[in-house]
């Protein structure tokens, strides 16, 4: 048995890579953008920051209008 690197960060990275890939493939462009931005903010901050996700959502809509 070996103590390979399977800590939570690693697992999380693996899982979220798959999650991001699935979000990109299974949601439409706008939905995926919204979900990925929020997911990234949660990864970054470790929690749901209402203000951040509100800003990100607004950004999705603003970008869409451009």
């Amino acid at each position: 048995m070996s103590d390979t690197k399977t800590n939570d960060t690693f697992v999380r990275d693996i899982k979220n890579q798959k999650l991001k890939s699935d979000i990109t493939n299974k949601l439409n462009k706008k939905e995926a953008k919204l979900a990925l931005l929020i997911l990234s903010s949660i990864e970054r901050e470790g929690k749901i920051n209402h203000q951040t996700i509100q800003e990100l959502a607004n950004k999705v809509f603003e970008d869409d209008k451009l």
């Binding site: 999380r12 899982k15 979900a35 929020i38 997911l39 903010s41 949660i42 929690k47 749901i48 209402h50």
Partner: peptide, 8 residues
């Protein structure tokens, strides 16, 4: 994270 994203 998926749940949190959905919750967000």
């Amino acid at each position: 994270d998926l749940d949190k994203t959905t919750e967000g």
